[in-house]
Every structure is written in C-alpha cells, then in structure tokens.
Amino acid sequence: MRMLFLLLLVSSLFGQIAQAAISEGEYTELIALFQKHYPDIQIQGSWDNDTVNAQAMRFDDSKLIVIYGGLARERTTTLDSFTLVVCHEVGHHLGDKPYFPSMAGVPWASGEGAADYYSIQSCFNKLAPAVGEQAVTLPAVYENDLRQICSGQSNTAICRRSLIAGLIIAKLQWQVLPNESNEPSLQRKDDSIVKSTLLDYGSPQCRLDTFIASATSTSRPRCWSP
C-alpha cells in the first residue's frame, strides 16, 4: 500500500482516535489471525522496522505479505484500519482483474482498486468478528450517513466499522496532497468515468467509493473501472 509511505496528520474529525495506534501484542495477534485465515499466504511481521506500510510480494509460487511495525505505531492506526490495510494486501494476492503487468511470468497482483474492492467484502467482513472493536464516536452527520449506507446489510455493526476504517484510509491519502482533490466524504461520490481501467489509485474519494461498494456488494465505481 504505497500511499502509507506518506502518512500525514489525521484530520480533526478523527481526533478522538488519533492517538490509537496498536500495541506489539495486538500487532502479533492480528498477524496470527491473518495467518490462520490465509494459510497459503505467508504473513510476516517486522516490528522493529519503522516503515509505515504493508506490502504484498510473490516469489515464484510463494505468496508473502510483510507488515512493518511502523504501521502499527502510526498514531492514526486503529485495529480496524490496520485490518483493512492488510486485507487490501490480501486483495493483491487473491483479488480479481485487472492485474499489474509482471516483469516475469504470469501477472498476479490485482490493481489497487481491485484490492480495495476485495478488502471488505471478501476479507474484513470475515475477520472483523475476531478483531477487538475500538469505540469510536463520530459527529451525528457521519453516524447518519453510515446508518443509511449500511441499513441494508446483514451486519450493520461490521459495515459501520469497515467504512470508518475506509474513511480514515481515504482521508490519509487525501492529506498527502490535499490541494489536488476534495476531501473524501460519505455524502458525495467521484463522478469521473475512466475510459480504461486504472491500476493505480484513483482519487481519495474514489477509494472511499470503492470501500463503500465493497461493503455493500454493489458495482465497482466507474472512477477506476469502466
């Protein structure tokens, strides 16, 4: 997840969770949880590495995800946002087309949008019941938006958690280059329509739209998938 190399301060909206981070024990437990659910992928931690990132890699037929300790120590990280980041990396291995071109062999890494689309409906929803929930109190307008978006889902609590995590991630991406796009919001969408499928990230709003589509099992947003 290359965006995470450039994390800046989280917006004041998430001030109540800005100092969350996760402990080494929680980090280790989450890695073990992912390894249990995805035994065909080697989930490797590197707690002493301060890089704020997680990466999906492949060596021949071996699938690998490396999760650096800096991601856990980043002050905006919550248990759910950490889980969603790693689910995104799982999506690079197990998600659908489009795939990044491969320098050698058959392409294997799902594009960024495809990995985001995989992340909630095929991963986060499965792992969330085993992940400790952190209490998050949001302004009423956000709670109303989340309630409306998640109203038709079988588990509205997990839908809410996944979208709060997705909103945090999208806002962090936006804060890297805030002058290049509008702040992502649950109340609008990226109305752009691409002519060809994007492999890299779309706008922060497009990412949030993709998380919403994944959580609600609706079509891929046209801001990255025509």
Rank of each mutant, 00 (worst) to 15 (best):
16 Q>K: 09
208 L>N: 01
109 A>S: 11
56 A>N: 05
80 D>C: 04
41 I>N: 06
127 L>V: 12
137 T>V: 10
169 I>E: 06
97 K>V: 12
173 Q>V: 07
95 G>N: 07
1 M>V: 03
174 W>A: 12
111 G>N: 06
34 F>D: 01
79 L>H: 10
49 N>W: 08
148 Q>S: 07
32 A>E: 12
134 Q>Y: 08
167 L>K: 03
82 F>A: 02
203 S>P: 06
46 S>R: 09
165 A>S: 11
215 A>Y: 13
38 Y>Q: 00
28 T>F: 03
127 L>C: 11
107 P>E: 02
225 S>F: 14
120 I>M: 12
18 A>M: 14
56 A>M: 02
179 N>R: 09
97 K>Y: 12
1 M>L: 03
39 P>L: 06
195 K>Y: 07
179 N>T: 13
29 E>F: 10
63 K>A: 00
21 A>R: 15
10 V>M: 14
28 T>C: 01
207 R>Y: 07
205 Q>V: 04
225 S>C: 12
15 G>T: 15
45 G>C: 11
34 F>L: 05
190 D>R: 00
64 L>A: 02
126 K>W: 07
142 Y>P: 00
72 A>K: 08
213 A>M: 07
155 N>R: 09
111 G>K: 04
98 P>V: 05
118 Y>H: 14
145 D>A: 14
104 A>D: 07
50 D>N: 13
199 L>F: 12
155 N>M: 09
52 V>I: 15
209 D>Q: 00
191 D>G: 08
50 D>Q: 08
9 L>V: 15
170 A>S: 14
150 C>I: 08
80 D>R: 00
210 T>W: 04
78 T>V: 10
147 R>E: 12
